[in-house]
């Protein structure tokens, strides 16, 4: 930047000299000075590093995962957690919806689950399920938390205070499945317009097939 401003002030003080050589390729002997702007920053060569990621061995990971689940069960003795095995994730933990913030805070601080990958909601007609998928860089695996809410009053404490990245996932779950997240910093609709009447991923929301509309258009009914 310094080079440019100096050049700029110099140019402002005296008028530009007329070009001595007419248009054409530069002669081999005559060295045209490089424009000042190109000297402002030296070419950067700090390319990206490539690293090998060291994975813990299968046995090591199983042991660490088991340790963590045991500690979690011990810490939340009174909360009746149900831990089941699931392919692809460390475990599936079913928990009562009232303890969501304490459980998530504990998992973030004590359980190395620093990344909340996804908050999903499923409509099971009588109930609604909320799923939290967490990722741990230390254990290199996902953990699935799940809880059930009654369909007539589906609300749960927001985990945006634990992981700010969960904020938009919760907005999406509210928008599409109609689950309310208490104390969410900004619980507005994410995709659909504000004031829209439906939560379209509820099973009560019927989809009209294009074939339906076609038949109606043809028969005039």
């Amino acid at each position: 930047m310094a080079g440019t401003s100096k050049e700029g002030s110099a140019a402002a003080s005296k008028p530009l000299p007329a070009p001595k050589v007419a248009i054409g390729p530069a002669k081999p002997g005559s060295q045209a000075p490089a424009p000042a702007a190109s000297r402002a920053l030296a070419p950067r060569t700090d390319k990206a590093r490539v690293v090998e990621v060291a994975l813990p061995s299968e046995a090591e990971r199983d042991k660490m995962g088991k340790d963590l689940l045991d500690r979690m069960k011990e810490h939340f003795l009174g909360e009746s957690l149900e831990v089941t095995e699931r392919a692809g994730v460390l475990a599936r933990v079913k928990f009562p919806s009232r303890s969501v913030v304490t459980l998530c805070t504990w998992l973030r601080d004590q359980g190395t689950f620093g990344h909340c990958a996804m908050v999903a909601a499923v409509d099971w007609r009588e109930t609604r399920e909320v799923l939290y998928t967490l990722w741990s860089d230390h254990l290199k695996s996902y953990l699935e938390l799940t809880t059930t809410l009654p369909a007539d009053d589906p609300h749960i404490e927001s985990v945006s205070q634990v992981w700010p990245g969960a904020s938009w996932h919760e907005r999406e779950a509210w928008d599409l499945v109609g689950v309310l997240f208490d104390h969410h910093p900004d619980l507005r609709r994410l995709f659909l317009p504000e004031g829209y009447k439906f939560h379209p991923l509820l099973k009560t929301f019927e989809l009209h097939e294009p074939e339906d509309l076609e038949v109606k258009a043809r028969t005039g009914r």
Binding site: K47, A48, R49, V51, V53
Partner: peptide, 23 residues
């Protein structure tokens, strides 16, 4: 290998993507 850069800015993201193409 995994491409990583320490700049954490727009420039670093550009470098990471270029290296990812090579990988």
């Amino acid at each position: 290998q995994v491409a990583v850069h320490d700049a954490a800015d727009v420039y670093g993201r550009y470098r990471v993507r270029m290296e990812e193409m090579r990988q």
